[in-house]
Design a protein around this nucleic acid. Structure first.
Lengths: 333, 333
DNA sequence: ACCAAAAGGCGAAACGTTTCGCCTATGCGT
DNA sequence: ACGCATAGGCGAAACGTTTCGCCTTTTGGT
């Protein structure tokens, strides 16, 4: 039913090779160019991507594997990535790891079986083994938001350590000396933010108390439980640094359900979510990442890698962050 | 580099036709079956989907066009849809309409150009013209969550009118006689929920006051602005029905920023979001949709349609809802 | 006016499957 | 023992492109 390049051949009297050349941006006489364009219009011709792909060994599709498709953070990144990909004629095939390493490994294989030209990943953990099949298949991989231990891939992210350091200083500057941290201990980003926190505390001549150190999963539950435990301590912290969106959400929940309130009884320095800064009373003080820039860079980078003949060494793009001030941090004495 | 069916031919001495038959589940002698399986293992063979697609005219991919990829609601549906599709060997190509009709129309064309086998849509508005190209190309379409005016497509959704009716009754039952409604006037679902509200109010022998009737976009801003306006009225409503996730979010924001609080000064009946019921203090009373069921049904339905020879008439799956009770509705006298 | 280089065009092969029509054993009932 | 149905297998064509190598025409410099 749909028309083919052969129909255009009939209509124009030109050869398949010439028409193909036109379609791929080659040089064709203006006269023939016009003929072809008219035929394409009339026939409503569209390139059959599968036939093309069979020859070129390209699908013009990019796999995007996110650690959790239901997080707003990932959703927004998907939007920005999708924009760039669509502009360039690439489709975006999405897989959701549900924060599970086995799912993640299986998804990579799935994407490879679908012969995607490139892959963008927000990994579940800081372990990179699951990417081996992609390397073996020579499919370019770009990491986003989270790097890996011994990372040998392109990566677009922020300087997590530095951002956490600055964020922690926000608490310190306001006179908080007893600070807790709630973080994800299972991915590179979480651990870097933890390091930044510790560094800031120690640079201020303080130490991190054992009870104030709350590693766990990247989840609302972890934030909720941790905050509950912190609030139940005899010797409570006055400030808490919640190092990602989910954890911040959970921590706020816990405070809301308790007899305490923020910032009167406990100050919170949050991370990662624009909506949260508005929905929650009081307005949260948070670290904001340049998400649009991140998504666009990642997409452009993977497209560039696909085009590259040589295998260039990996690049890390480290983007800047800013702190959006709210009223969730109380100034002490 | 990757091995082909020809390599298997060499290894086994069988013909291409026989191997292909095996791959597609046809009858082959047990002896040959084993030979083929061994060869596949050894060669690490994977079917080249593009070559297959070129012959069968199928891509084994489904386009999913969502009105807004950054909403949690859509994110969760994507997860459930993706699960089913992946299980069945189908990839999920995602497009984001950003709540814009032009984007939406363009995205459908994009998906068709990618030759997806089927399309799942959460439409931006209640107008269905943008789907004409899909109908023309005979690509099956399944709607999700939102139907269309004069709808001629399969659809998986809830009974919005009834759900809204029940929700409104929740306010009425608690003695609220002055109720406002904030809704999206631009899509089928929003309008149906509005109708359900009006019906419940009128069945209670009341009328909907002009000032309490807040149509607008499906956005946080609309919820926020509307609630602000309602709170500024001399004659304020005592109850507000916020008919979707974004609008509920915005409305809660507005209350939090005002001198009033919920439920003491204003009661809210919300919609659609599980997280919100926990994060916000007090716990919200909301209408909950069976999202997992919705996603799975939609995915299975589109797969079924792809297989169908005949063009069966469209089916609507109307799923049940429940009301999750919180403390956001005050009992009057 | 001549020649070299560049531009434009062409036919045919190739990409890796599926499928059609046909052929050959094999097994079964009588 | 005979014939017939059937299971299993095969070769070849087809799907709609791109690309390679080669040929012809045009262009531009001297």
């Amino acid at each position: 039913m749909p028309s083919t390049i052969r129909d255009i051949k009939e209509r124009t009297g030109l050869s398949l090779a010439t028409i193909s050349k036109y379609l791929n941006g080659g040089n064709v006489l203006p006269e023939n160019k016009e003929k072809i364009e008219i035929a394409i219009k009339e026939l409503n011709y569209q390139v059959n991507e599968m036939a093309r792909g069979l020859v070129t060994n390209k699908t013009r599709s990019i796999g995007v594997l996110v650690h959790n498709v239901a997080s707003i953070f990932c959703g927004l990144l998907l939007r920005y990535i999708g924009d760039v990909l669509k502009e360039n004629g690439y489709s975006m095939i999405i897989c959701d790891a549900r924060d599970d390493e086995a799912n993640q490994a299986e998804s990579i294989k799935f994407l490879l079986s679908k012969k995607v030209d490139g892959i963008i990943v927000i990994p579940v953990s800081d372990k990179g083994d699951f990417l081996k099949p992609a390397v073996a298949a020579k499919v370019p991989v770009v990491l986003m938001d989270r790097s890996l231990r011994n990372c040998d891939f392109d990566c677009v992210r922020i300087n997590n350590r530095e951002a956490a350091y600055k964020a922690t200083n926000e608490l310190l500057k306001n006179g908080h000396k007893k600070n807790a941290v709630i973080y994800s201990a299972h991915n590179y980003t979480g651990l870097q933010r933890y390091k930044g926190f510790v560094e800031a505390i120690e640079d201020a001549g303080l130490t991190v108390e054992k009870d104030f150190d709350k590693p766990g999963f990247h989840s609302i539950e972890h934030g909720y439980e941790s905050m509950k435990q912190l609030l139940a301590l005899k010797n409570k912290p006055t400030g808490v640094f919640t190092t990602n969106y989910e954890v911040t959400l959970g921590a706020v929940m816990a405070v809301n359900e308790s007899k305490y309130s923020c910032p009167e009884d406990i100050s919170i320095m949050g991370f990662d979510n624009l909506i949260l800064t508005h929905i929650v009373q009081p307005k949260m003080t948070m670290v904001i990442q340049p998400m649009k820039e991140m998504g666009k860079r990642a997409a452009n980078l993977v497209l560039k890698r696909i085009g590259d003949k040589e295998h260039e060494p990996p690049i890390e793009y480290i983007l800047g962050t800013k702190i959006e001030k709210g009223n969730s941090i109380k100034k002490l004495n």
